[in-house]
Design a protein around this nucleic acid. Structure first.
Lengths: 256, 256
DNA sequence: TTGAATTTGTTCGTATGTATT
DNA sequence: TAATACATACGAACAAATTCA
């Protein structure tokens, strides 16, 4: 996947298809729905449309592109799957949000597939999360140094209390991680981390252990993270991040 | 995108839809194609199919699921867009490779859209590349410490020579980065980095500057990277990685 | 509330193109 | 070459959701 040759092929494919003008009515290519998809992408691109902006109706697209309705619909379905457009019955089609949802969807399925054999992908997802966490560590510490963040501490407290009652705390967990990352203007990294978190959480329940004290450890390391960041201690922060993944490392073989 | 509420919604949506048994003929939900998509995913999941494995024909899917041909086709198109299935005329449908292609496709379009305004996404893509590069730095250095890698050095030499002739070296560039990462068993991180590289490269030509000496600087810093890794010098390696993104930082405002 | 207009959702029938044997 | 199996594509008809008068 994404090997040398296919990278070149993909590059050719996308750098062309994403920018080629296909507004003419002569749609050629592998199949109609693919060509139609490119045409719709070009439509969005040429007009610089933004998420939520309306697209032509299916009937109009048929007329303009000279293809049957089924082809237009298949193209719209593809773009819908990629979160590039959003189709709503009775209303019309609109430019989508282009989120990481397709990535999440693919990874969850991929994860589920080799779960039966060796939970390899989950290991990779968690390792990637850690990589991203450590990768932005310096930014995080620099940003939170000498600040006071009662909101984040409140989240940690809430997690700790829930952990002591044996409850889980997904909402607080994602809110905590988002709070640590949201200061960064890099929405791509944020979304990538959220996506990894999502895949991670979506698959945790399928692991054997119900983790009694793991919850407490995780809550505690969350506290260590924000405290280290506020103290401006990069080393301690990184250690806290690693410790944060400690309970998981026992379940799955991390570092692989 | 992927905000608090939508995360929960997505989690609900995916953790359910990815594992719910929809093999029964009673397909309910937002629309047929979505429900049919889930059913096909369940089919793959239940049988633990792997990439390349054949799927039932469209006609059989229609019969089994009790839906019309078009609905099955739209579902297959969606899965095709996500690289979860691969449809081939005259042969049939097969389980796909589930690569990062959907991510690349979405990001390239997203990038192209705000390029006109502020090239924000490209900045994010490059920053994410750097984050990933730095995130695995320790692993890389530990792995290459006290080793000798003539192949990689040959790649650097080739890049340098091409740069001196004013030529570009995309093939060598991706090969170099792959060589540095491929030792890791984490195929997800690898693919993520390849995907980011792809988006990055796909959009570079659209920048103003044709970069004469930038090519040389990049080639040189590649040499610095592998030398630092072989010397086991983590600090020097990280500096080389940062320097590697130096020419770009001038074009786009990195660190934002 | 009703109803008409608009737009997507779904189905069916038919014909064509492509790959395998 | 011919037959078969399969996906591709088109067009027409009706259902369901949304909007607005």
């Amino acid at each position: 996947m994404l090997s040398d040759k296919s990278v070149q092929a993909l590059l050719d494919k996308y750098s062309v298809s994403a920018f080629s003008d296909r507004t003419d009515a002569l749609l050629t290519g592998a199949n109609r729905s693919a060509a139609t998809m490119d045409a719709i992408k070009s439509y969005i691109l040429d007009r610089g449309l933004k998420p939520g902006d309306p697209l032509p109706t299916e009937a109009k697209l048929c007329a303009d592109l000279g293809v049957a309705r089924s082809s237009v619909r298949e193209a719209l379905r593809k773009l819908e799957a990629l979160d590039i457009v959003s189709v709503q019955q009775g209303r019309g089609s609109f430019v989508g949000n282009m989120t990481m949802r397709p990535l999440v969807e693919t990874l969850i399925l991929r994860n589920a597939l080799d779960h039966s054999t060796g939970k390899a992908t989950l290991r990779h997802v968690v390792a990637t999360r850690r990589t991203l966490d450590l990768g932005i560590a310096e930014e995080v510490v620099n940003h939170f140094k000498n600040t006071h963040n009662p909101d984040i501490h409140a989240l940690v407290d809430a997690m700790t209390q829930k952990a002591e009652r044996g409850e889980t705390y997904l909402d607080e967990d994602i809110a905590f991680h988002n709070a640590l990352n949201s200061f960064s203007g890099n929405t791509l990294t944020q979304q990538l981390m959220s996506a990894m978190w999502l895949v991670h959480q979506a698959f945790l329940p399928h692991l054997d252990a119900p983790q009694a004290e793991s919850l407490l450890i995780t809550a505690k390391t969350h506290g260590d993270m924000i405290r280290a960041a506020e103290a401006g201690d990069l080393k301690a922060y990184k250690e806290a991040v690693n410790a944060h993944y400690g309970p998981l490392a026992k379940l799955i073989d991390l570092d692989t």
